[in-house]
């Protein structure tokens, strides 16, 4: 369990807006071990979401080396990166990001379309993932027929449907009430504990961060302090 799932060396990311160059990540060095639950904290603009996007291969670093799940992302072409993402990463977004015209089970099945599974197998996998998040009885419901907490649990089911090693969660409890937020955090802790998923969760909420094993602080694009907790509270 001591292999690095994420290793960043001198990662730099800048954006140019209205002619002004903004450095979001400034030579970041970071290492995150496989099988751990990390919370990424920091003030707005500290580069949390940018780092999450880089780790997930949704964006590319300007400089530096980034290895995730054993792959140097800079070396992958667009198509290879998409395939790598499909196989290795599950995303959970603050706004859930479910496809509104698809039912819960169809949303969970969506990433499985990229797998070699046949239709029946896809449905079986999707139903299993929904069962894991306790929503098998809501399989036929459309996102607009679900509560925010249920939507986020469907999004988590979608994130684990392909059995990825890494789950990236961007403010997963940001749009939820306290009770739903607890359910989602419980779920993430379970996925880490029972299924050994590596989880990197961006959050502003110290209470949510408490559920992680390690809390990594970012400040002005650089690594701040790292807090280690004995075990995730379930």
């Amino acid at each position: 369990m001591n292999d690095a799932m994420i290793r960043a060396r001198g990662v730099k990311k800048t954006y140019t807006r209205a002619g002004e160059t903004l450095t979001v990540l400034d030579g970041l060095d970071l290492e995150m071990e496989e099988g751990h639950f990390y919370a990424l904290m920091g003030p707005s603009g500290s580069g949390k979401t940018t780092l999450l996007n880089l780790v997930g291969g949704l964006d590319a670093a300007d400089e530096g080396e980034l290895l995730v799940a054993g792959e140097s992302l800079a070396d992958l072409s667009g198509g290879e990166l998409a395939a790598w993402r499909a196989a290795n990463v599950g995303f959970v977004f603050q706004a859930f990001n479910l496809i509104p015209v698809l039912s819960a089970v169809e949303n969970v099945e969506l990433p499985l379309l990229l797998s070699p599974l046949n239709r029946a197998q896809r449905r079986e996998h999707a139903m299993y993932a929904l069962k894991l998040v306790g929503l098998e009885d809501r399989a036929k419901h459309r996102p607009q027929q679900l509560s925010g907490g249920q939507e986020q649990r469907v999004a988590i089911a979608r994130a684990i449907a392909t059995d990825p090693k890494l789950i990236l969660a961007d403010e997963p409890t940001g749009d939820l009430d306290r009770k739903s937020a607890e359910q989602v955090l419980d779920l993430l802790v379970r996925l880490n504990g029972e299924l050994k998923k590596t989880i990197l969760m961006v959050t502003h909420d110290p209470h949510a961060a408490e559920r992680a094993q390690r809390v990594v602080h970012l400040d002005k694009g650089q690594l701040g302090r790292v807090e280690t907790r004995a075990a995730a509270a379930t």
């Binding site: 667009g78 998409a82 395939a83 196989a87 995303f91 990001n97 496809i99």
Partner: peptide, 16 residues
């Protein structure tokens, strides 16, 4: 456009 963004995040290729 938003759905396209989601699909790409899930691993769908540009061509897909």
């Amino acid at each position: 456009a938003h759905d396209v963004g989601i699909m790409k995040a899930l691993g769908f290729t540009d061509g897909g």
